[in-house]
Design a binder for these strands. Structure first.
Length: 838
DNA sequence: GCAAGGTC
């Protein structure tokens, strides 16, 4: 049996289909892993797909020094006896030494000194972590099990993973697993770069050997990424530990990406706005209005602007002195690859991470092609006309599809990047908008329209420029009209609205009004949108098509970034400052380019994986020394930044910072004073726990407490003072019913919902409270109104509360027999739902 | 509790 190992299930399926003589391989499963069996050249074949990397590098659980190979040999006093790396590089402590014959001793003791444990995240262990050995551990146990099962029975193995560096590594890792159960089986490598019969046949007729140097190059990347990432992440996290869930990460790609955003923010902060003036007004001809602006555009001197404005102030008429028309064409766009899809989707409000998750599910549903590609040129094997024709089933596309199919042979645009790994992203089947969730449809629609647009002609836009003399001053009006729709008939994304001008000719008089001189200021460079950031990462060689979106997500998750367009937090800026000072290598894209060079040399056999990794460890070791020396400084800077990010304002009582805190007990957030325990000021956070909030600059004019802007999920934001007893938070009292106790006693008492001036809490109390003692608690959130109804179970009033999910009617009596038992003693959360189910 | 790279 011949075993074919592909990188992913989909590839295995394709390869099996193309290699099998029948064209229809048999679908089978080994344990839970799908495999494809077929006949070829009189042999039984089986193809299995991996799931990318099946092994993951990690530090050993028990860290002993296995042998001294490639490492340092040191005597009892720590003197270096022998080393594989140059003297100029920093050295780790080492336990081992040399035997008399010069070979390294097997250490008897663990590598780490007493009290040092790299399993725990402690700063003193970091110099050891930098030099710790790395192991490859199984990451995809199910796949490995299936692979070994098949390998046992294999007479021949063909590695058919993707034709790139990571593919070679994935294949090499798979081979290591094969060898464990079948050490002598012959192994070859198939190299293909398209799933076409010709390409796959050619690859399997010309099998080569696995390129171990190339795989080693990939593995050195894995090791360096892990070692730097783990050491720096642990350092930053532990320099001032912020408690569970407060990991401060760093890495070869994420840190330079964060640095890009921080750099832009610093440019914005350093930006000095310049004053300028514009003179604008409205023109009118034949009842149609249009905007006119002074031909000079921006006046940089106030006097010049004033002079020009003095001439035209109050003008009511102008004369057309020239009309020029210029047509320009807008070419249809190139086919989508991952980056251009992410950028286009980001402009439509889908963040890259979300785009990739949606794309993955559309791909799995068979609606779009493989979403991780660099290629922007459709392969000749793709039947463009047939693909377009299939989209005719989507009513909105039908007219354009007909137009494309009736216009002679179908031709497509080509992008600049041409690779043959996968086709550009295109729709593989028509979709039904009613069967997809709105965001998935939005993305599908974008992909489908883009595909159709790439098959269409250019759009022609006619631009009109009209020069108008107003009281001796030159003014301009301009208009853009889409003359020939071309691809714009199906692809409206980013299209500017037509600005139609009325018909005008030289010498015409036009009415002019509302001419005004406006003072403006130049704007700082804009923040990155997520789409722009992705493109910038690609430009600088940071990350890959498959990782960029998730790396940005990670930066948001660790709270280095916030908002869209992307803004760094104080923490994000502090992290970059700290690393820039002591570990600058990690903050620039150069680490990636150096690594690329090193990997090229490893793949060419000019150097070894161990040498490259050790050099990198040595570089890190030096930086780690500097970092550790300044741990207190850095810890403080990070803690200050975290406080600044959490700050919502100043304490009206003691003047110290009021910050957002998380209560460990109630698992909810509140606002507390940094002066605690000397100052006891706390406030609840308005809105729900999950609502996005942002502090406002100005404190409350009534009570001096901070004010917040709150964005409730899927509804309009509002601004509110955090002090519940502030006059601005007062609510009118609402009479919700009559008191049943007073009624029985022959009195009249009104039950009134009102807000305590002390605690700010809302509750119901009888107007005769002193006599009857009747009060009820109330929900604290949502607008309250009386219903006039009483509860059928207990006679207490029923109120209506307006919540996010609409109005809700409740009996205000907590002990009402008609209510399910809640409160103390009643199970909560999951336990409660579980009980309900059972 | 670490990275980045594959893929689900």
């Amino acid at each position: 049996m011949v075993l074919v190992i592909a990188e992913k299930n989909d590839a295995a399926k394709q390869i099996a289909r193309l290699l099998s003589e029948s064209g229809r391989p048999e679908n089978d499963k080994v344990y839970d892993t799908p495999v494809y069996r077929f006949r070829r050249g009189g042999d039984d074949w089986v193809a299995v797909g991996l799931r990318g990397h099946i092994l993951a590098p990690d530090f050993p659980r028990e860290l002993h020094y296995a042998d001294g190979e490639g490492w340092f040999a040191v005597d009892e006093d720590g003197e270096v006896l022998a080393a594989d790396v140059p003297d100029t590089l920093p050295r780790p402590p080492f336990d081992g030494g040399l035997k008399k014959d010069g070979t390294p001793k097997k250490p008897r003791k663990p590598y780490l000194p007493d009290g040092i444990d790299i399993k725990g995240w402690k700063v003193p262990s970091l110099p050891y972590l930098v030099w710790a050995p790395v192991e490859k551990k199984p990451a995809e146990k199910g796949i490995i099990r299936a692979l070994k099962n098949l390998a046992k029975k294999a007479d021949e193995v063909v590695i058919a993973t993707d034709f790139d560096r990571e593919g070679e590594l994935i294949g090499s890792d798979a081979l290591s697993q094969v060898r464990m159960v079948n050490p002598d089986v012959p192994v070859t490598r198939a190299r293909y770069s398209a799933y076409t019969k010709a390409e796959i046949d050619h690859a399997f007729d010309n099998l080569v050997e696995l390129d171990q140097d190339l795989a080693d190059a990939g593995e050195s990347r894995q090791y360096i990424d892990l070692i730097w990432g783990a050491a720096l992440t642990r350092y930053l996290t532990m320099a001032r530990y912020g408690g569970f869930g407060n990991v401060r990460s760093a890495g070869r790609v994420q840190t330079p990406t964060l640095a890009l955003v921080v750099e832009r923010e610093r440019e914005r902060q350093a930006f000095v706005p310049e004053d300028y003036w514009v003179i604008q007004g409205m023109g009118e001809k034949d009842g149609e209005e249009f905007r006119i602006s002074h031909a000079k555009g921006r006046f940089w001197k106030a006097e010049e602007a004033e002079e020009a404005f003095a001439a035209v102030k109050g003008a009511t008429e102008g004369t057309v002195c020239a009309v020029t028309r210029k047509s320009r064409t807008s070419k249809p766009p190139a086919p989508f690859n991952t980056t251009s899809l992410q950028a286009a989707a980001a402009a439509e409000g889908l963040a890259p991470g979300r785009t990739m998750r949606l794309a993955e599910s559309l791909y799995m549903d068979g609606l779009i092609s493989y979403p991780r590609v660099d290629n922007t040129v459709y392969p000749s094997s793709l039947d463009l006309a047939a693909t377009a024709k299939a989209l005719r089933k989507v009513p909105a596309y039908a007219p354009v599809v007909d137009q494309i199919l009736s216009g002679g042979p179908v031709k497509a645009t080509r992008g600049k990047q041409e690779t043959t790994d996968h086709p550009p992203i295109y729709p593989t089947a028509p979709a039904d908008p009613d069967k997809l969730e709105p965001a998935a449809w939005k993305l599908y629609n974008l992909v489908a329209r883009r595909f159709l647009a790439t098959l269409m002609g250019p759009a022609v836009i006619e631009g009109t420029k009209v020069e108008i003399d107003v009281a001796g001053q030159p003014f301009l009006a301009s208009g853009d009209v889409l003359k020939t729709k071309g691809y714009r008939a199906i692809y409206p994304y980013g299209l500017k609205k037509d600005e139609q001008l009325p018909a005008m000719a030289e010498g015409d008089a036009v009415a002019v009004r509302d001419v005004a001189c406006e003072a403006k200021q130049t704007e700082p460079p804009a923040r990155y949108s997520q789409g722009r950031l992705i493109q910038e990462m690609e430009r600088r060689g940071l990350g890959t098509k498959s990782t960029r979106a998730s790396i940005i997500d990670r930066l948001f998750q660790v709270k280095y970034l916030k908002n869209n367009p992307v803004e760094p937090s104080q923490l994000g800026m502090a992290i970059i400052d700290a690393l820039d000072r002591f570990a600058p290598t990690i903050t620039t894209p150069e680490m990636t380019s150096t690594l690329e060079d090193d990997m090229t040399r490893v793949s060419e056999g000019a150097t070894s994986e161990a040498a490259v990794v050790d050099r990198s460890r040595a570089l890190l070791a030096g930086m780690m020394d500097d970092l550790i020396e300044h741990t207190d400084d850095l810890g403080e800077a990070i803690a200050d930044a975290v406080t600044a990010d959490a700050r919502v304002g100043a304490c009206p009582k003691c003047g110290k910072d009021l910050v957002l805190k998380n209560s460990a007990k109630t698992r909810s957030r509140f606002i507390g004073c940094m002066g605690w325990p000397d100052c006891d000021v706390t406030y609840p956070v308005p809105g729900r726990n999950t609502d996005k909030i942002e502090p406002l600059e100005e404190p409350c004019p009534e009570c001096g407490a901070p004010r917040l802007k709150v964005w409730p999920f899927r509804s309009k934001p509002y601004e509110q003072c955090v002090n519940p007893v502030c006059p601005t938070n007062r609510e009118p009292d609402v009479v919700v019913g009559t008191c049943p106790v007073c009624a029985e006693a022959g009195r009249h008492g009104d039950l009134v919902a009102h807000k305590s001036e002390k605690t700010g809490k809302r509750f119901i109390r009888c107007t005769n409270y002193d006599e009857c003692g009747v009060s009820y608690p109330l929900p604290q959130r949502g607008k309250l109104s009386a219903t006039g109804e009483t509860c059928p179970h207990c006679g207490a009033p029923v109120v209506e509360v307006e919540t996010d999910r609409g109005p809700w009617r409740i009996c205000v009596n907590m002990d009402c027999p008609g209510k399910e038992k809640r409160g103390k003693g009643a199970p909560r959360g999951r336990a409660r739902t579980a009980r309900k189910r059972s």
